[in-house]
Design a protein around this nucleic acid. Structure first.
Lengths: 135, 135
DNA sequence: GTAACTGCAAAATATTTGCATCCTT
DNA sequence: AAGGATGCAAATATTTTGCAGTTAC
């Protein structure tokens, strides 16, 4: 699983990459840089985490989720990424109680009609509220 | 105009607040912290900019715009803010050419149907593409 | 006059870069 | 063996905090 993804993207298989990728696969929600640093323990250098995340984003293994605060969130999109081509056209949900952000892969972003002159290419949507677990 | 907004929100009228607020009113697009620091020249302390923006957000004079990179963008919503109550339920547009982000106040965020269990409260939408000026 | 705002200094935090070493292929 | 990845150190950037002085009301 982890190996497949790395190999498919022509990346060397290293402990750090395996561990971080597993973290994404096993995690329900999106992860911030800080989460990853914590979860991998003291095993990896902070810089390695930065570089690994950057690499994964470039390869399309994970994608960034827009947030309203100043945090950067990353999430792996199971279906899309395994297919190798990257299109995260799904809605993201932030729970205001548990504060988790998750990908709603089955909910696609609706189209909107823009004013004259605008040529839309991509749309993202972020819904906040209370998730099923927190109700 | 500027004075009205500040007074309406029970804020002391100071040079910094006036200047920063004017900047938002005269600007078409959203502004990042760095933009504001640049535009106000060397007149204001970096810390004052931070605190002013924070105050404006708390008062609902400006609102944060979600972004996919790590930047934080602020924008003033003319109609809503003058009315005093804050609801930025409009779509935001990022131009991939000029890199400006603007509020499409006339385009409201559509509703989406979420999976069982989710209780949505607020939705934001971010569309990227090419704006009218850049075509 | 008083409360609120600002500027400076400094601390805390976050991110980037260079380089030598180690690991994967 | 060669190229890429890592870890460390350090440079850079960003954000927060405390406090004294200043300004708005």
């Amino acid at each position: 699983m982890v190996l497949d993804i790395l190999k498919k993207n022509h990346l060397s298989v290293t402990d750090g990459r395996k561990k971080i990728l597993e973290l994404f696969i096993n995690s329900e929600g999106a992860l911030a840089h800080a989460d990853i640093e914590k979860s991998t323990g003291e095993n990896f250098d902070r810089v390695t985490v930065y570089r690994t995340l950057q690499t994964f984003v470039e390869k399309g293994i994970i994608h960034l989720i827009p947030t309203t605060d100043n945090s950067i969130l990353y999430a792996l999109c199971k279906d899309n990424c395994e297919a190798g081509h990257h299109h995260d056209n799904h809605v993201h949900f932030v729970c205001t109680v548990c504060n988790k952000t998750i990908c709603l892969e089955e909910v696609t972003v609706p189209h909107v009609k823009l004013p004259e002159g605008f040529a839309p290419e991509h749309a993202q949507m972020l819904v906040s509220g209370v998730c099923g677990d927190c109700k």
